[in-house]
Each structure stands twice: as C-alpha cells, then as structure tokens.
Amino acid sequence: SLSVDNKKFWATVESSEHSFEVPIYAETLDEALELAEWQYVPAGFEVTRVRPCVAP
C-alpha cells in the first residue's frame, strides 16, 4: 500500500522574543526536524527542539 504512517511531533520554534511549539507530521524524528527547519528557518525562526508527541 502507499499509505504513509505519519506521526505527530512537537517542534519548539524560537524567535528573538518568543518561543512556541508547533505540531509537525512526519514519519521519523529526522524528517520532522527537516520539515520544521524548512518551514520556519526562512521566516527567521530557530528550531531548537523536536520531540515525539506522547499520547496521554
């Protein structure tokens, strides 16, 4: 099958004044980091952490 098993990760994104967490959907932690950097670094943010979303 061609289905992709995307998992939810939380990326911590920082600017000079703010820090916030955004959801990233990817297959692996490395891919989540790449996606977060691709989305947020060009906008002037720094991705400081990516972690798996742990269900309660």
Score class of each variant (00 low, 15 high):
L2C: 15
E21C: 07
E31A: 12
S3M: 11
T28Q: 03
L33W: 15
E34S: 11
P52R: 07
R49F: 09
A43V: 06
R51Q: 06
E37I: 14
S16C: 08
R49C: 07
T12C: 08
A32H: 01
L33S: 05
C53G: 07
A55P: 10
E21H: 06
L35A: 06
K7A: 08
S3H: 13
V13T: 01
Q39H: 10
G44S: 00
V54F: 12
F9N: 01
S3P: 12
H18R: 11
H18W: 12
A11D: 01
L2P: 10
S16V: 07
S3E: 08
V4P: 13
V4M: 11
A43M: 15
A43I: 10
P52L: 13
Y40H: 04
E31T: 04
L35R: 08
I24M: 03
T12Q: 05
T28A: 03
E34H: 14
L2G: 13
T12E: 03
F9D: 01
W10N: 01
G44K: 00
W10G: 02
E17P: 04
P42H: 11
Q39F: 15
V47T: 02
N6I: 15
P52C: 05
I24C: 05
C53D: 15
R49E: 11
E17V: 08
F9Q: 00
K8E: 06
A32I: 01
P23Q: 09
I24N: 00
L2F: 10
V54T: 12
P42F: 07
N6W: 10
L29Y: 08
H18T: 13
F20K: 04
D5Y: 08
E17T: 14
P56M: 10
P56Q: 12
K8P: 05
A32L: 03
E46V: 13
E27Y: 11
E21P: 01
A32D: 00
E27P: 14
H18K: 10
Q39C: 15
T28S: 12
F20I: 04
T12A: 03
S16I: 10
E34M: 15
R51A: 06
P56F: 09
E17Q: 09
V13H: 00
L2D: 09
P56A: 11
R51L: 07
E37S: 08
S3I: 12
T48Y: 00
W10F: 05
E17F: 12
A26V: 01
A26E: 01
A32G: 01
V41T: 11
E14D: 04
V54H: 11
D5I: 14
Q39R: 08
D30N: 10
F45H: 04
T28R: 03
G44E: 02
V22H: 02
D30T: 10
F9I: 00
T12D: 02
V41M: 09
P56R: 08
V41Y: 06
F45C: 04
F9A: 00
A11S: 01
R49T: 09
V41E: 07
I24D: 00
Q39M: 15
A11M: 04
V54L: 13
R49W: 06
V54C: 10
S16P: 13
N6G: 09
L29W: 10
S19M: 09
F45T: 02
V47A: 02
E14V: 14
A11Q: 01
R49A: 14
S19Q: 08
A32K: 01
L2T: 12
T12H: 05
S1A: 12
P52W: 08
V50I: 13
A36D: 01
E14Y: 08
L35K: 13
R51P: 00
P42Y: 06
V4G: 13
D30F: 09
V50C: 00
V13M: 04
S15K: 10
A32V: 02
F9G: 01
H18V: 13
P23T: 09
E46G: 04
S19I: 10
V22Q: 02
S16Y: 08
G44L: 00
A55K: 09
A32Q: 00
P52D: 06
T12N: 04
A36M: 04
P52H: 08
Y25T: 04
A26P: 00
E14L: 07
S19L: 06
K7H: 09
G44D: 04
W38E: 15
S3T: 09
A11T: 02
V13L: 13
P23L: 15
H18Y: 13
T12R: 08
L35T: 05
R49K: 14
P42L: 09
A36G: 03
V41C: 05
S16K: 12
A32C: 05
F9H: 02
K8M: 15
V4F: 08
N6A: 14
K8Q: 07
C53E: 13
R51D: 04
F45R: 04
L29E: 06
P23I: 15
P23K: 05
E17S: 14
S15M: 07
P56G: 11
S1H: 13
E34K: 15
I24F: 04
